[in-house]
Amino acid sequence: MAALYILVIIAALSGLGLLFVKTVLNAALSLVICLLSIAGIYIVLHAEFLAVVQILVYAGGILLLIIFGIMITSTPQDVRPASKWPSFLLAFLPALMLGTCLNGVIPAEATRSSNTIATFGIELMTQFAAPFEFGGVLVLVSMVGAMITASFQKQKQ
C-alpha cells in the first residue's frame, strides 16, 4: 500500500513537471518518469501484462519517437505560458472535482488472483481475437501512412 502511494506521488509530480519544465526535452524525460511509475502502479493493481506493455511501448517506443522528433525539429526554447496561475488552476481544480466524482462510484472492494497473465492471454486470443486482428491492421496502416507522410522527396516538376 505504501508502494502505491509513493508511485502515485512520483507520477503526479513528474506529470506536473511536464506542465512547468522549460525545454521540450526535459518535458519528455519527465514524461518517461511518469510513464514508468504508472507501469509500477499497474503492477500494484495486478495488471502485470499491461505494465510490461506500458514499459515496452510507451517508455520504449513512443518516447524514443518523440525524442527523435524533438532532435529533428530542434526548436529554440519553448515559450512558457504567460502566467503560471491560469494553467495551475486549470490543472488542479478539475482534477479535484473529477477525482472526487470518480471516488464516489467505486464498487465494493475485491481482491484479484495474483497471476492474471494466463487468463489475459487466453481471453485475448479467444473472446477478443477480432479486435486484436483489427488492431494489427490499424498498426500496419498507420505505420505505412507515417512513413509516407514523413518521407521528404523532391517534387517532380
Binding site: A12, D78, A91, P94, A95, M97, G99
Partner: peptide, 21 residues
C-alpha cells in the same frame, strides 16, 4: 489511483492548451 488518473488527465489537458509547441 483515481485521483492520480484525474490529475494526469487534467495536467495533460492544460499542457495541450497552454504550451506553444
Amino acid at each position: 489511483v483515481l485521483y492520480l488518473a484525474a490529475f494526469l488527465f487534467c495536467v495533460g489537458l492544460a499542457t495541450l492548451i497552454t504550451r506553444r509547441n
